[in-house]
Design a protein around this nucleic acid. Structure first.
Length: 277
DNA sequence: AAGGTAGACAACCGCTTCCTG
DNA sequence: CCAGGAAGCGGTTGTCTACCT
């Protein structure tokens, strides 16, 4: 197993993608849909390994990707989801459907880590997360921004195709439908993205009791049971196949629970005074 | 104006997980 | 159940750009 051997082949190009390569890849995916990446270099003539093609598509060319500055709302979500889930960038990005895991990861490493470092000695991460959420939810009355990027046009070109191909990326297609081709509001996204009527018994049960000073669930004595509950529910809800993460509203509920607030007040003041947020 | 430095982010590497025969 | 291949994921690196001296 291990690394894919295709990347070691002689003649495999590395480095930045050219617009010509992008067009080749986009055209191919338009025709065949994403997936079967192994065949992409062969069928397109691209001098790239399949992995590279997949990455380029998912992180850059896929329609519906929002690029550019993160809104305070997104920032807050990342902070508290990171506190909850750890460095599970794919999981975190799934709550921010317009952002890729790579994007979220980069943003965390370059921006948020530094920001939070300032507060780390004063407050543990879950508390920080709660503060951030309180702030962002309070101020989240639509923070829609318009983003420009070099690839936005390519993405735009694909919007129409995605609408015409409901079997491909159906979720994104639905998003495009309902958004009329424009970028959607965060609220709209949240409303359609996650399993709407889910009863997250396990998450709600967990409440504050299972948090630890480390900011995750894994260190708590109750966590094994908690994990089992989550896992069972995941299997039930997803038929053992797809990825499952608890709905944002559940996380929000947990984070906003008053009994968790504790030392948050103090931190809030600190943040109010800080130029960071 | 030129060189140095830091920040941002695209892309790669390699490990893990999933799927299929 | 097992092995091999493909895809997913997170960590890291490389490169470009903006800013500073």
């Amino acid at each position: 197993m291990g690394r894919s051997p295709c990347c070691d082949k002689v003649g495999i190009k590395k480095g930045p993608w050219t617009p010509e390569e992008d067009i080749l890849l986009v055209s191919y995916v338009q025709e065949h849909g994403p997936g079967n990446w192994r065949l992409v270099p062969t069928n397109t003539g691209l001098q790239r390994c399949s992995k590279s093609c997949r990455l380029r598509w998912t992180n850059y060319l896929r329609p519906g990707i929002k690029r550019g500055n993160f809104t305070p709302h997104e920032e807050g979500m990342i902070i508290h989801l990171q506190a909850l889930l750890g460095n599970k960038w794919a999981a975190i990005a799934s709550y921010l459907p317009q952002r890729t895991d790579n994007d979220v990861k980069n943003y965390w490493n370059t921006h948020l880590k530094k920001k939070l470092k300032k507060f780390q000695p004063a407050m543990e991460l879950p508390q920080m997360a709660q503060v951030c959420l309180n702030k962002t939810v309070a101020g989240s009355s639509s923070t829609i921004a318009t983003y420009a990027s070099s690839t936005e046009n390519i993405s735009r070109l694909l919007q129409g195709w995605m609408r015409a191909s409901p079997n491909i990326c159906s979720n994104q297609s639905a998003i495009n439908e309902s958004g009329g081709g424009d970028l959607m509001s965060n609220e709209h996204f949240e409303s359609i993205l996650w399993f709407e009527n889910m009863n997250n018994v396990a998450w709600e049960k967990s409440a504050c009791g299972s948090t630890t000073s480390k900011g995750g669930f894994q260190d708590s004595g109750n966590d094994d049971q908690f994990s089992v509950e989550i896992t069972q529910e995941m299997k039930q809800k997803t038929g053992n196949n797809s990825k499952f993460y608890p709905s944002f509203s559940s996380l929000e509920k947990w984070l906003l629970d008053d009994s968790c607030a504790g030392q948050v007040e103090e931190m809030n003041q600190s943040i109010e005074l800080s130029p960071i947020f």
